[in-house]
Design a protein around this nucleic acid. Structure first.
Lengths: 145, 145
DNA sequence: TCCTATTTGACTTTATTTGACTTTCTTGTA
DNA sequence: TACAAGAAAGTCAAATAAAGTCAAATAGGA
């Protein structure tokens, strides 16, 4: 995938978080913008689109001198309950692939299973399936990683 | 039969997929249209008529800057229709692991997901899930071995 | 001819990038 | 202590980049 600037900044931050103690980092918006030669609001954009609560991140910040933006990842697991459509589930699976927790092929396989299985279900059943798979996958990963 | 433009684009994409790692490619619609000197919606047309689920392809996309269209192929086959309960499916998975077609942990993951996810589904949904997983596995196997 | 598949293009929706302006802190100084 | 200056982050809207939709026009085959 051709990476947009937003994608690169996202990836950079995720690596920092991965390597951090406590899955938490503090950055200075202006400094990060400097690093990527972009305007500071670009950083705000990335944070507000990619590090939302529903993706398992929480952010805090402070303005003024010695200001900062703090990003905390809470266990990948805690927002599983909200996965009830194909987009969210696929997003979840894609993230696992990105993080190298799943292989590309494993991700493809899972996505196919879901797409295939859901095609004969009604809306209610489908939601159920998406959520069940997300829970089950998460459960499995918790046990094995 | 004279090849239409749509046919040529289809063929081109299939070659790309064949040569790709993981039977998955990402293209930019506008760029491909440029290559074939046609309007972008022509590409959309090709993708929506030739790369459907029923032909063994799945697509995802993103609009906006650095957007893309991702096409993934999974092979389609048909003689696993009989797998419709947990025992048969688990037996099938175990065999694949024994034959070293699946890794031990891949097998575990699938069994876990299936067992766990199926517990919240009704009978009809459950059968569906078992069969879908069997099919997906078979496809996975066709692609990678 | 009639039907279906293809081609084209105008318009829509979504995502990203940029920058001007606003708000909120911290710190130094009277 | 109060206040002004400066440092950071936030907001918002415009500009740009890509993909999607839909329907009209055209081409090709039975």
């Amino acid at each position: 995938m051709k990476k947009s600037l937003a994608d690169k900044i996202e990836q950079y931050l995720k690596v920092l978080i991965d390597r951090s103690e406590g899955k938490q980092i503090e950055i200075q918006r202006a400094e990060l913008a400097e690093t990527f030669s972009c305007v500071p609001s670009q950083v705000t954009y990335v944070i507000s689109t990619r590090f939302q609560e529903k993706f398992g991140y929480r952010t805090e910040s402070r303005r003024g001198g010695k200001g900062f933006v703090r990003i905390t990842r809470f266990a990948v697991t805690s927002d599983i309950a909200t996965i009830n459509d194909a987009d969210k589930l696929f997003h979840f699976i894609n993230e696992l692939v990105e993080k190298k927790i799943l292989e590309l092929n494993e991700g493809s396989m899972l996505k196919h299973i879901v797409a295939s299985a859901s095609s004969t279900l009604n809306d209610e059943e489908r939601k159920n399936l998406y959520n069940s798979v997300a829970r089950a996958l998460n459960e499995y990963l918790n046990l094995n990683h």
